[in-house]
Amino acid sequence: MNEHNRRRGAALINEVNQTEVPYGTLAIWFLGQESVIIKGDGVTVYIDPYVSDYLDKNGPERSYPAPIVPEDIVGADLCLITHEHEDHMDAGTLPAFHKQNSKAPFMAPACCKGPLITMGVKEPLILVADDSRETELFSKLQISVIPAAHEQLEQDAEGHYRSVGYVLKLNGVTLYHAGDTVVYPGLIERLRAFKPDVAMLPINGRDFFRRERGIVGNMNYREAAELAVSIGAETAIPLHYDVFAGNAEKPGYFVDYMYEHFPEQKVHVMARGERFVYVSGQAFMNRP
């Protein structure tokens, strides 16, 4: 990695660690694919951190370098993994993440536990994603696990789902990160009950030809837009459209569809490495 990129990554992580957001807001950073950083009330959460060049050596090349590298990541409190695919559970990132943030727990589907241990993550720090209950961490973050159908709902013998998304309640804001999923019966009703402020949704879609190449798909931009509106999300953010040229989508299609069909729906397309501060109505009320 060249000196410019090294300095850029260190500057971004310094920005994350120095950012303080008032009640009713969340700070969000976009690292590409579905990799994001969420911060609120002093808690910093990484979701699917894929910032290495691991896949460059084993499969498709990235369309652009990640805004940070694994060695940049310090100050993390929690890592959430949605499923075992390499661009979500990154063997090039997670060992460094764990080494540099040794007290940060991981939450992941049960099928990810063995691979995480192989990567060096200590077993007591691994929390199995359980959709039957809400998990509270740090006395300020509530996490609900949402089953994800990538492209189908898959469960092991104990009923644990292979792919999941997460609903985070933090700092007076409710955020849904879908992971990789299509829309399936019951998903809308389950999410609607949370009244999410922010919905982060994959838009790259799926088709016969990608499936023949072993690429498992997601909802497309139309489905993602309809889902965001159906669950009452205040703001929708598209994900999973930019890292691999053979499995990409134009986020402008998502924006155009929203503008044409739901012109009052708020949408935000994040730039690479951008800090976006979401402000909810709670920001203008007294903190409970």
Rank of each mutant, 00 (worst) to 15 (best):
L80T: 11
I81Q: 10
A108T: 13
R62Y: 09
E61W: 13
N58Q: 08
V43W: 05
I126K: 01
H85R: 14
P67Y: 11
S102Q: 08
G40V: 05
I126D: 01
G59W: 08
P67W: 14
N58E: 05
Q100G: 08
G42K: 09
K113R: 08
A108C: 12
G114S: 04
R62T: 15
D87Q: 13
V121N: 01
I47S: 07
C79M: 13
P109A: 03
K113T: 11
A91Q: 15
C79L: 11
I117E: 07
I68G: 13
C79S: 12
V69E: 09
A66M: 11
S52D: 05
G40S: 07
K113N: 02
I68A: 13
P70W: 05
I68C: 13
K113L: 02
K57D: 04
F30I: 00
D90T: 15
I73A: 00
P67M: 12
F97V: 13
P115N: 12
E84P: 04
I38R: 10
K57I: 02
Y50C: 10
K122V: 03
T93Q: 10
K39T: 13
I73P: 07
E61S: 14
H98W: 03
E86P: 05
G92V: 09
I47M: 06
V69P: 01
R62K: 15
T82H: 06
M107D: 03
I68F: 02
V69W: 04
H85N: 13
A96Y: 15
E61N: 14
D53S: 10
N58G: 07
V45C: 07
A104D: 10
M89P: 14
T44I: 04
I81Y: 04
G32F: 03
C112Q: 09
Q33E: 11
I126P: 03
L125I: 06
E34S: 09
I81E: 06
T93I: 05
I38D: 11
L94G: 12
E84C: 02
Q100V: 12
C112P: 04
G92L: 04
P67E: 15
I126S: 02
T44G: 05
H88W: 08
L125N: 07
L78P: 08
V51N: 00
K57P: 00
I117Q: 03
K99V: 02
A108V: 12
Y64P: 06
L125S: 10
D53I: 07
G75Y: 00
L55D: 10
Y54H: 09
A96L: 15
D41K: 11
D53R: 10
P115G: 11
H83S: 09
G75D: 06
D53H: 07
K57G: 02
A91Y: 14
I68Y: 10
D90I: 15
Q33H: 11
T118S: 00
A66W: 03
K122F: 03
E34K: 09
L31H: 12
E34L: 04
V43R: 09
V36N: 11
N101C: 05
V43Q: 06
P60M: 07
N58L: 01
A108Y: 04
P60V: 08
T44N: 06
E71P: 05
K39F: 01
G114N: 06
D41Y: 05
A110V: 03
V43P: 00
T44L: 01
V69M: 10
H85G: 08
S35R: 04
L94H: 14
Y54L: 10
V69F: 06
